[in-house]
Design a protein around this nucleic acid. Sequence first.
DNA 1: CTGAAAGCGCTTACAG
DNA 2: CTGAAAGCGCTTACAG
Lengths: 362, 362
Amino acid sequence: MKRGSRPTQHDIARAAGVSTAVVSLVINGRANGKVKISSATQERVRQAIRDLGYVPNLAARQLAGGQTNVLGVFTYEPIFPMSPTDFYQPFLVGIEEQATKSDYNLLLFTRPTGTGRRHIYHDGVNQLLAAQGAVLVGTNEDRDELSRLRDEGYPFVFVGRREINGENIPATAADYTGATEALVGRLIAAGHRQILYISFQSENESAADRTRGFLQALTAAGIPAPERFVHRTEKAPTITIEHLRQWIAQGITALAFEQINTAYEVLELAEGAGLRVPGDLSIVALGKADDPTVHHHDIDTFFIPQREMGAGAVTLLDRILREPDASISYPITIPCTPVPGRTIGPPAPSGAAGKEVVEQAL
Amino acid sequence: MKRGSRPTQHDIARAAGVSTAVVSLVINGRANGKVKISSATQERVRQAIRDLGYVPNLAARQLAGGQTNVLGVFTYEPIFPMSPTDFYQPFLVGIEEQATKSDYNLLLFTRPTGTGRRHIYHDGVNQLLAAQGAVLVGTNEDRDELSRLRDEGYPFVFVGRREINGENIPATAADYTGATEALVGRLIAAGHRQILYISFQSENESAADRTRGFLQALTAAGIPAPERFVHRTEKAPTITIEHLRQWIAQGITALAFEQINTAYEVLELAEGAGLRVPGDLSIVALGKADDPTVHHHDIDTFFIPQREMGAGAVTLLDRILREPDASISYPITIPCTPVPGRTIGPPAPSGAAGKEVVEQAL
DNA sequence: CTGAAAGCGCTTACAG
DNA sequence: CTGAAAGCGCTTACAG
């Protein structure tokens, strides 16, 4: 054993008077498997390990095909979501909790790529290969990279439903469709027939899921979907009191917001201008983050199960690694818990004619 | 190149008509170092890399002595500090930010050990060896493990000053001594002569630093340290209004709290009982976490530079890895920014006699 | 049950 | 400048 370096299995083998194969088997607990090692020999090996302070070299173990118990975590977000108000923070908490339970260490891919934005591939090198598999989190993902990742057969799970070329990739997803259908169903049950869906300009899978749930709720109630049921808005809300008045004049009795922040702003806007909610207008939000610093109980909405999504991603990845050939249907869907509020009520007694165009240029 | 597996340097070498050594040199950017590789050859290698989609095997690279750019993060805390109100969260943020800047990925040691508490050594195996070096965070550390870690020569940095066998180990530390001396100095400048230091029962390095700063402030002002200047308390505060009244009767005019939470509780207790702060009693706290969810501006205190401590730990570890033989004096001390409050004022005009025993059994 | 040996994919002297 | 080769420390058939 060379000076200054750690002892190797070779040193142990010599000290115990056995071969390195025996040492390896004892260390990995395979001494009672296909090959039997006498317990006397095992004890000699263990004693030598203690005496020499042997510790396995993980790189060598990995190179030789052993397990390293390292799962990667990658996000396209600019920095790791460790700010307490960050939407992605609860996902990470869930990932971390489940990693502990499933006996994995976590490799956070924090290395920059020089372009200012994170990338999976640096100079064509898949950075994730340092881990046995990876959990991906966040929006703004690069679909080309995901596509390539899948083609390479690298094991990964996305947190949030994602389609590549129309096909669902391994993912855990909130049941936005079901939760939206249930919530809009409550509006309909309260008597609403003209409901406007306020969405962002950008279209993605989770928005599509909500839209589907919205339409399913209408269909289930036998209400024909109006030609234009969605009002698209920029990230910075552009809704004014004039919008609200005009919508009410058009017969709209309820608003369903994709983002709860927008819903809150409009709620304040409406009530500040003397409109009653839900008297004049009912309001729902199609999802609410698990943000512990915000405790509103006003708006009817549902929780996005962020921790469960993160934890589920680790569980799913673990399964993929253990059973590479299992056929699993993606995404794994996780239900959303309803959050009751005070913003659903019966529609105003008499609105405008129901036949008018729902939306106009504003 | 075998089916189903990734191409290796050997495949690249064959495709480019060179040896694996050349491939390695080109990949690692050493093609212009001691050994020169013609740019034509370099380009052929790069082309082959692109054509075959080669990606290096990190385990092999590590085993052969190359760089992996992986830094470990270990904490003795029960779970990773991802709760927004957690004291350790800002350290992690700082670590993450600096890791990105210094071009490292982060390996979070989340694997449990079965004992309920985290450990560096699992069955005698140093888990941190999966990384080139590690940053350690949190209290409740196992000094024996730290000692062994240091004896092994494993590169690590603690966030927070720590001594092993009376010797400072590599660490970044808040300047509790200087900040405490300055803050207590303000009390003295305001006229206070009998100041009681409220500390926890447990003694550790940061408490010792504060104590030293406290005594230095007295010494600098030529005030002899009273025999008993510290009141020790349990984690759950055990201070009552009777304590306060008795202290005032004894001539105490100011309290310096180790923990800001205790300071706030006592402030409320005092004011609730009709005592004026700072009229009857001045109060300072010896440090305040960077907790974004709490915004008190009442008590005179100072910020604990948590993010800087985390970031500094990565910077220091990076330096240790690059210059293993550099002699660095530990800990690296980081100043604390003062936080002005409203709880320092001149002492009450006439207290009790200054000669009495400062503390009595209560 | 045990031992000698190949091989994982890379880096790095060393000899041409 | 380039190539053949050793070695990093481990796992795993394979032959005794």
